[in-house]
């Protein structure tokens, strides 16, 4: 009996040491005003840092920016991804090739995707502005215009993550039974009616899981912000994870950074619970 638990021991002890211990440690830090500038002195300040979360306009602003970003990105990725999935669900020549091509943006790391788009977004010799001017428009400052920059970042996220949504939805579509759809078509239903009343309800669990998935991942978006804008111009793209990083490792106020990090953790936990519930229902 003991020998069997021996197999799982490395895993459980690793999770305990690498996840639970730092989690507790992070909470401890967030209860202090630990700052690397104060030469390591950490005074217990109780829940002060957490009170800040509700009163500091900077933090509240970051939460709003993150909400805008997440909502826009997930919505666009869902619509775009569903469209691609529906297109690829047909029995057409070469569909398999397209399915493979679909993976490529996913293989690109968020950091490299930021670099790819940085190159496209360059105002003076960037390709996007050149194409716009070719079509008769006027080039824009993708990363420097405060009203535009959040959308530019959303576009990078959409580029990288739509294939994920498309692949998951495609798998869902392809696992559907054919009889209801065929029966409806025989009864004279149009394509749109079949989609609205049969296909969509049948894949609603998959849709829920993929939307929650993308949401919980979007909330802690960091790489593309750090590489493309560093939260700027001004604070137009200072999402909550980037703010935590800034407070903790640039201003070196680790107490505050940890508290913000914990907030992100709690929000992610809540969403994860929904994901697990949604997945269990499917069983």
């Amino acid at each position: 009996m003991v020998k069997e638990y021996f197999f799982v021991l490395p895993l459980i002890s690793l999770v305990a040491v690498t996840l639970f211990y730092p989690l507790i440690y992070a909470f401890k830090i967030s209860l202090t005003d630990f700052s690397l500038f104060s030469a390591g002195t950490a005074n217990f300040v109780g829940l002060n840092n957490y009170a800040l979360l509700f009163h500091d306009p900077v933090i509240l602003y970051s939460l709003r920016i993150t909400a805008y970003f997440t909502a826009s990105a997930v919505a666009i990725e869902f619509v775009f991804g569903l469209g691609i999935a529906l297109l690829l669900n047909q029995e057409l020549l070469g569909v398999r090739v397209f399915r493979v091509l679909l993976i490529f943006p996913l293989m690109v790391s968020p950091a490299i995707s930021a670099i790819l788009w940085r190159w496209l977004y360059t105002p003076d010799w960037g390709l996007l502005n050149y194409l716009i001017e070719l079509l008769g428009g006027k080039g824009v400052n993708w990363l420097g215009n405060p009203s535009l920059v959040l959308f530019s970042l959303v576009l990078v996220d959409v580029w990288r993550n739509t294939p994920f949504v498309a692949l998951v939805l495609l798998a869902g579509l392809q696992s559907l039974p054919r009889e209801p759809i065929d029966a409806a078509k025989v009864d004279g239903a149009s394509t749109i009616q079949v989609f609205r009343f049969i296909t969509l309800p049948l894949i609603r669990h998959v849709i829920l899981v993929v939307i929650l998935f993308r949401t919980v991942t979007s909330i802690s978006i960091f790489d593309i912000i750090y590489i493309l804008t560093r939260g700027g111009p001004g604070r137009a793209t200072d999402t909550i994870a980037h703010l935590a990083f800034k407070r903790g490792l640039i201003h070196f106020n680790l107490g505050e950074g940890s508290a913000i990090g914990y907030l992100i953790f709690v929000i992610s936990c809540l969403i994860s619970i929904f994901i697990i519930l949604a997945m269990r229902r499917r069983r």
Binding site: V15, P22, Y25, A26, S220, F222, F245, G261, S268, I273
Partner: peptide
Amino acid sequence: ISYMILSIRFFPAISLVFPYYLI
């Protein structure tokens, strides 16, 4: 245990950087 393992995937990376940095 399986579901716990699953939920680890959704762990926000930023939440643990500070303790890891110090450790």
